[in-house]
Structures are given as structure tokens and as C-alpha cells.
Design a protein around this nucleic acid. Sequence first.
DNA 1: ATTGGGTATGCAAGCGCTTACATTGTCCAT
DNA 2: ATGGACAATGTAAGCGCTTGCATACCCAAT
Lengths: 339, 339
Amino acid sequence: MTTAPTLEDVARAAGVSTATVSRCLNMPDRVVEKTRARVMKAVSDLNYTPNFGARVMAAKRTQTIGAIIPTMENAIFARGIQAFQETLHAKGYTLLVASSAYDPALEEQEIKALVARGADGLLLIGQDRDGSVYDYLARQQVPTLLAWTHGADAPCPTAGFDNRAAMRGLAEVVLGKGHRRLGMISAPTATNDRARQRVAGVRDAMAAAGLDANALALVHAPYDIDSASTAFEGLMGQSPRPTVVLCGNDVQAAGAIHQARKMSLAVPEDVSITGFDDMDIAPVLSPPLTTVAVPHRAMGQRAARTLVAMVEGEDMQPDAPLATQVILRASLKALPQAD
Amino acid sequence: MTTAPTLEDVARAAGVSTATVSRCLNMPDRVVEKTRARVMKAVSDLNYTPNFGARVMAAKRTQTIGAIIPTMENAIFARGIQAFQETLHAKGYTLLVASSAYDPALEEQEIKALVARGADGLLLIGQDRDGSVYDYLARQQVPTLLAWTHGADAPCPTAGFDNRAAMRGLAEVVLGKGHRRLGMISAPTATNDRARQRVAGVRDAMAAAGLDANALALVHAPYDIDSASTAFEGLMGQSPRPTVVLCGNDVQAAGAIHQARKMSLAVPEDVSITGFDDMDIAPVLSPPLTTVAVPHRAMGQRAARTLVAMVEGEDMQPDAPLATQVILRASLKALPQAD
DNA sequence: ATTGGGTATGCAAGCGCTTACATTGTCCAT
DNA sequence: ATGGACAATGTAAGCGCTTGCATACCCAAT
């Protein structure tokens, strides 16, 4: 056979109609045991795989969920997506992942590609995107869930945590340790609401502590080790120098620690450093990293459950945000009392 | 409008036939300017997106490439896949990624899902899988490329490097530093030819140096930090204790270093540790990690070019394996000469 | 034996798109 | 004027599958 077998080939081989074969595959209990056995044998003899395009076109459901994550370059989204996939799989859905490299235009293309491909639902990260994208999604009636963020006022249902409150919690701990000159390395905030919220969280804490929120020494850098190193170097060049640098993410914190070592600055003696995410590497860095633990797996699972419910037409009442937790490790130290 | 517009809706709105609309979209120069403008206006007025299933079914090409990677949990495959995607994108293809969690059965399901979805080509990692899988792929006539591995005798074309030679190169350096009692932490080798090859590479070097290859203290652990920590602890419990532990991967090396610190073993004074991959974290660990640099991006790009060529029916002569490079950093030290 | 009520199966109409082929229209050479 | 060549567009036949409806069949009850 030079071309892939079709339903009809199977039907012929089993001596039944295409309808029966289709039913065997999709609603096995509507076909009597004996026939089904014969059909299944033909299926495996011919090594038949249904043609997806045809199936979609006829049935209008794909049992496929699409997800677009900003990056696969580091593990930020990996754990959550893995859990998301596992849960989807258990529910009979297949996950297709694309990565946008933090580029809104690319993301938009990928959204269209996934929708065109018949994704029954979409998972996107964060809520910063052009209104036209949400219009398009609404128009195409594709249930969409936003993860890694939380908000009742978001343009779609969300499954995530409150980035602002989470970072504020960490900043409060930092301030509680006596730090007053705060530095921060954040991802570019233009199209990244999570990053923006984290910055806002730090400022919230500063304001609440009676500090000038604008005094935050803020530097932007992409989520990679080298950029963060450079950013850290810049921060350390300022005077007075910050006593602590809060990083928007553990990867950046790793870069900061790395750079500190290069500059012969002891962490935390000369400068404290914190991260965000509590990735695998956080406890392994030296010094081990103070960070914010994000419930990645729980978020992925919840996202899967919610999105499937949306796809299957159930009403979902909005979820509360997931809780995050400050993890204290050696990279943050208390400042000696000055007053 | 309650349902997505179809080609026919557009045709009606523009006052032309569906064929003309289709041509506007797929071969614009076969339609005269004036008509095309009218059609395009209708398209954007209606916010029309072609139905992928229908298009696939009629045209039999999807411009989609599928990739299945063993894990997204850590960044092992991330850089390569990212480059793969970028190159595909430049060539007008969309990449769909699935993760098999190192489970052959899951991988098989995902292969079928991707094929059924009309992937024009497939990228798989390594070559260890049931013959029936390759039969299926041949049957379905889906061009398939194996990455992260190299071999003229592989069941499909490959785009990668020689794991065995790469690890042998590192082991030779290690032996050259005077180490004689070697420990190794490898991923489970049952369905992972890359891991198996790396072990073989170490044994090759040992044998070539006149050592007993069976004297290698080998422990298996999945690619995560905690498992590697445990594995390292086991290795250190043996006596005589290895003077160096070669890890199948940088993540495992991170776990090993972490565990060494916990056990108050100084690296590299008490024990040397090496990794594989030269991930971002390798230079950031303390001590910085001696490892093998793998040309991830080059591999991803080559894979994309080769696979697209295969999909488009060009003949490809087999490529040479990509070169790897031993990166010496502080985690490996020379042993004092004993003789 | 008949009849009625289920069940198991077959029939055939699409699903939205592409594309080979047919048709219509245009323009130029004769 | 007329025919021919070519360009622009339309017509309609699938692509492989699902599913509402029709048919065939089986068994129990009469």
C-alpha cells in the first residue's frame, strides 16, 4: 500500500460500512462485540490512523488544547505546563505548545495558527495583549484562559496568582530585614503584565513602609543569565549602592549571583539577592536563593480543569488566586540596625 | 454572526466564486488586482480565517512540523528546539511540540496524534524506539528526523552529535588529570540511547587508558536535581570512593554539587564533578562546572533545514555529526601524581 | 406463526476547502 | 470583421470522516 489507509479501506477489510468503523472508534458500545473485534483487527492490520483534518471537519471538535508560552529557553513555565499537559491528557485532550519568544506579533500569529488548527481552547500567559486579539478570540468563540496571572477584571478567565501581592510579600520581608536601598532587576514591562505587577508590588511595600517608591533602583533585562549579569553590574555601579537586589525571576537572580562573584562581592554580606519562582536551581545556587514559591503544578492542573470545563460548556465561577509563599534562604540577610 | 465565516460567505460578500477567494488567498497573482482588493476587503470585513481541517483535507499539506521531546521540565532541549522553531518559522512552517516525559508509550501516542493532525514532518529525539514505530512512520510516509543523536545506521536521518565520542572526550580529559576511580550518574538507559552512549563513551576512555571498564561506579537517576542528589550520595557511600563523578547532564551535576555541599565535601578538592550540555547554569554553579558544550542552536537549525528539505522532497546526503567541545571549569581538578 | 420493540448496521448528506477543467471575456493579428 | 490565444473567473468533484435517519434483524410476547 502506497498511501495511508482510510476509513473506507478498513470498512472494506472488515466487511462493514464506514459508519460502523467510525462508531467502533468513537462510541464502541454502540457496536456489538463480534463486529467490533473484526473491525479492530482490520484497523490494526492496516495500521489505520484516522485523518485528523477530516475528523475535525465532520465533528467540529479536536480534543486539542493549544498553549502559547513566552519562552521555552528556561524552565519558568515548564513545571506548570507539564502539569497542565498531564491533566489534559487524563481528560482525553492533547496539548500543542508554541513559544512566542516574548514577541506579541509572533504570539498573535501563533494564536491564529492554533485556532485555525481547530484548538478547542487556548491557554495564554498573562493578560497584556492587543484588544483585537481578544476580539478575534471571542469572534471565533475559542474559550481562552489566562495563566500566571489573576484578575477578576481580566479579559478572560484566569488561573494563577497575584504577582503584585506575591512580590509585595517578599519586599515586605526584605524591608523587615532592615533594607532601605532596594534595587530591582525586572523583565521588560512593556508587554509583560506579570513583570509590571511585580515591580508594582515592590513599590507598594516601599510606600507602605514610608519610603519613596520612586527611589527603587530599577533595571530591565530579559530573562537570561547574561543579561541579568549585566543589569546587576549596572545596579552595583550606582551610588549609593543598593543593599539588596530583587530579581523578577530566579534565572535573573542566578545571573546576579554570578556577577556578584565576578565582582568579588559577597552574597549576602555585601549585597542580598532574591529571586522569584522557586525553580529547581534556587536551593542549589550558592548561596541558596531567597525567592517566592509559585504553585506551578497546582496552577497547571487548575488551568487544565478550568479550560476543559469552559470548552465543554460548563459555567465556571471565578477562582480565587493561588497562594504563593516567600522562601527564606541564605541569599537574603538582615541588615544591622542603623538607628 | 454566530458562527465563523466560511469561504462561501466571503465569496458571496465579494460577489465572486469560492474558487476565486481561494486563489486570492493561496496564489494572489492568479487574480486580477481589482477583484483581489474586493475579496480582501470581504475577508477582513468578515474577519475570515480559513478552516484548517478543510484546507488540510483538500490540499494535503499542513505546513506544520511536529516535535516530541522527552521533557520540558528542564532546559535540556529548550535551546535546540527554540532554534529549530525559529528556522522553521522563517521557512513558513509552524512547530507543534509535545512532551513524552521519557515514556515510550506516551511518545507513541503523541506521534500518532501529531501524524493524525497532519504534521508534514516529525522531529524525534534519539533513536531508541520500537521498530513498529518506524514502520508506522514509513507507512504513513511522514518524513522523520532524529536529533540529539548521530548515526548513519539509524532508522531515520539524524541531525546531531556523537554522544559516545563526546563523553569519551570528556572522560579522556578526566583520566588525563590523573583520576582513576570514576563514578558516573547516568539517566536510565533502557530507552535512552543518548544516555547509553555516554556511558559507553566513558568506558571507551577507561579501556583505552588500560583500566577495567567495568570498574566504573555507575548509578542511574532521572534528570532532576533531587534524584541526582540521592544518586551522588549513594556514590559517595561506596568505598573506595570515586575521586570524580561524571554526570550525564548538567542538571544532574547541579544536584551532585548540591549534595556534596550538604555532605560537606568540597568540590573539587574532595571530589571532582562534571556535567554534560553546557547549559546556562553551568558557569553559574559553584564551583563552575566542567562540562561538554553541545551546539544546540546549530543542531536545531540544521534539523529544521534538513527536515524541511525532506518534507519538500529533496534528497539529502547524510550530514557529518556536529562537533562538541569539552569546557574546563573549576569543578574538575587534577589529582596529585601518586606514582 | 405473527407482531412489536429494540438493536445493530448501512446509507448518504454534508463539513469547508482546493483544484482540474470548463467557460467567458479581452485583445491583437489578420 | 473574424478567429485565436491567453487571462480571469466559475463549476463542481472530491478530500476522509461523522451522524441523522432508514433499514434489517433478532427475540419475546401473543
